[in-house]
Design a protein around this nucleic acid. Structure first.
Lengths: 247, 247
DNA sequence: CCGACGTTTCGTCCGCGGCCGAAGCGTTCG
DNA sequence: CGAACGCTTCGGCCGCGGACGAAACGTCGG
């Protein structure tokens, strides 16, 4: 009837972004970068499962589209997700992708490390992440809803006392506190600037260390003590069968 | 080195979903369905900008992948987004797509209706949506954070008094209250089961009516009065240049 | 200064997938 | 009962884009 549908604000832009994510090799690259670390082109080629030249082309496209940021360092080039918004897209895609026909995925030992503690882009996930959120909720530092979270006044004071500041990240409109529903625990953990601060703080203090070639992190001796004294997270709370005790 | 990177939980599934959204015609279809209404295959063909046979193929793929739900009615087939999760993906994609190089988009008269009041999947957006969220926040019915929102006790009582119940939507883990950052206002409005209830309630009471072939809605006489008495939203609050008065 | 390494560019091949026209099925109306 | 309509299926065309090998560029080490 009428000439053409109104060119919906960047419906074409949506297709462009989605098409970039829609290639298996590129999806692997982006998934690998969801670990939060910057990775070299070579490492990403390994994750992508294709050759170096092909990977280079993919990385160029992703960078030009603004999905990735690149940083030259010697003869390496480090790529990382360009913004938390990109991570948000990947996160929502994972929710859809895993929501489908619940394929039985036998949890191997490799998974166990991931389920205990891992990074989710720039914040903590796994049982450590969800337990941390729960404890902070119980102590009134944050209020945890199913669709969002808020930092309370006392929570802000508490975190300031830990030396955690929340810079506005250079004018970006990134939320202070978000929740992120993760695929393994099916429970919420803290994201946003707060989640990022908690992760970087934990890394700086040596409470956790990254496990190479994986999104999993290991909790150190200092971390075991630190999480217990500061947040009241005992190792028992992180036990693998805690779900059995609850359910 | 090692044989292959661990087959990341459904990284391939992510690519599949994203590739489906990544086609311009399909992106147009999904964008059109973000209005929240179920549309026929013919209407979607018009939105997609391709012929009927091609559209049929797209719809079959989207349905089989679980992105769309279809309902036969006479000789029509009505398609709608299969779940709020899908809407969440589209929402996050829009955030990325519009965040890019801020192309100057001169607001035409068509846009003005959209900016005033429109649907965003199954809840209200535009100035009506953001103002509604603000007023409920000021009145202590909800607490609005930048990364989430919570319904207070008094808010729950108030809404129950309006006859709004919040069924758990058939066991799905859909949040009661989410925020949705929209592209035009750059401010938060209420989504989740609460947002859906507010929209359907407004439609049932005849406070708003859908404008055909558009995501915009018009506020009726009854609506103008209803929003004012129940939520304290006066027409002045919805004026186009309210941002000027504030900024 | 030369070789090893990481990364990109170029050229080529090839297969997937979107698009349409024509035809087939089911429904609704005159 | 036949025509119009909505939608889908089929067949064929064609172009985009991902894959690799070979080679060029740039950086680090001996």
């Amino acid at each position: 009837m009428t000439s053409q549908p109104l060119p919906i604000a960047s419906a074409n832009g949506i297709a462009t972004i989605a098409a970039l994510i829609g290639d298996p090799a590129r999806a692997n690259i982006l998934s690998a970068l969801m670990g939060g670390q910057a990775l070299t082109a070579g490492e990403l080629a390994w994750h992508a499962g294709v050759g170096a030249p092909t990977t280079s082309g993919h990385l160029a496209k992703l960078s030009e589209a603004g999905l990735l940021a690149v940083e030259r360092q010697g003869r390496h080039r480090y790529y990382r997700l360009a913004s938390p918004d990109i991570a948000q897209v990947m996160e929502s895609l994972m929710a859809v992708a895993t929501a489908g026909p619940r394929r039985h995925r036998p949890p191997g030992p490799k998974d166990e490390a991931l389920r205990t503690a891992r990074t989710c882009y720039d914040h903590l996930a796994g049982r450590l992440g969800t337990t941390l959120a729960d404890r902070m909720n119980e102590r009134g530092l944050v209020i945890l809803g199913d669709g969002g979270a808020l930092v309370t006044g006392s929570g802000h004071d508490f975190l300031s006392g830990l030396g955690l500041a929340f810079p506005d990240a250079g004018g970006t409109r990134r939320p202070l506190c978000r929740v992120c529903l993760d695929w393994s625990e099916r429970r919420s953990h803290l994201a946003g600037r707060l989640g990022a601060a908690l992760l970087s703080c934990s890394l700086e203090r040596g409470w956790i260390v990254r496990i190479p070639d994986s999104r999993a992190v290991a909790i150190t001796e200092a971390g075991s003590q630190g999480f217990a004294t500061v947040f009241g997270i005992t190792p028992e709370l992180l036990a693998a069968d805690s779900s059995l005790a609850v359910g």
